[in-house]
């Protein structure tokens, strides 16, 4: 059953990503991105990372994409024209994308040992919760990077406040 879900939502993620590029109205593109995020969440879940799946839904589709949609609604962005694009994009774009795809798949396949493997539905069948394990790692071994990241985000928030504040 997890295999069926994996295939269906993998296809849905690809379809959503293509739709994101092909739609002419920004709000339709943003909604396609929401579909991609949700499908990714299902993929994470079917690989046994249920906490990551929930975080993906709550953070990306529930918070960040809502803000995207919000901004598009407020700016009242209209439909965009299809342009032929620059010639450089055609010449460099397709080979570049193909090259990145090849390099990534080569790295993933050759470093398979170091990256490790997971089974479809992996931990879901054994009934183990990975939230406890994630938090243990996060608050012991990776405590410094975790705290540094939160300080970084705090700096970004302060920067946004400074930029948004009106001059007296």
């Amino acid at each position: 059953m997890q295999l069926a879900l994996f295939i269906i939502f993998g296809a849905l993620a690809v379809a959503g990503a293509l739709n994101l590029l092909l739609q002419r109205h920004p709000i339709n593109s943003a909604l396609s991105l929401v579909v991609v995020m949700m499908s990714l969440a299902v993929l994470y879940w079917s690989l046994g990372a249920e906490f990551l799946a929930a975080a993906q839904v709550i953070v990306y589709s529930g918070a960040i994409m809502v803000l995207f949609v919000f901004v598009i609604m407020l700016l009242n962005a209209g439909e965009e024209e299809h342009t032929t694009g620059s010639r450089a994009a055609y010449i460099v774009g397709f080979p570049g994308a193909a090259a990145i795809f090849c390099i990534l798949s080569f790295v993933f396949l050759s470093e398979r040992k170091a990256l490790g493997l997971t089974n479809l539905g992996g931990q879901l069948n054994s009934g183990l919760s990975n939230i406890a394990e994630i938090s243990t790692v996060l608050f012991t071994r990776l405590l410094l990077p975790f705290e540094v990241t939160s300080v970084l985000i705090l700096v970004a928030i302060l920067g946004a406040v400074v930029l948004a504040r009106k001059e007296q």
Partner: peptide, 25 residues
């Protein structure tokens, strides 16, 4: 009975915002 049941409820509530946002727009 999910082991992330509470997060599922929070996540689905946050998706429900789209219905209202899109209806108005």
């Amino acid at each position: 009975d999910l082991n992330i049941g509470l997060l599922v409820i929070l996540g689905i509530t946050s998706i429900g915002v789209y219905g209202i946002a899109l209806s108005g727009w």
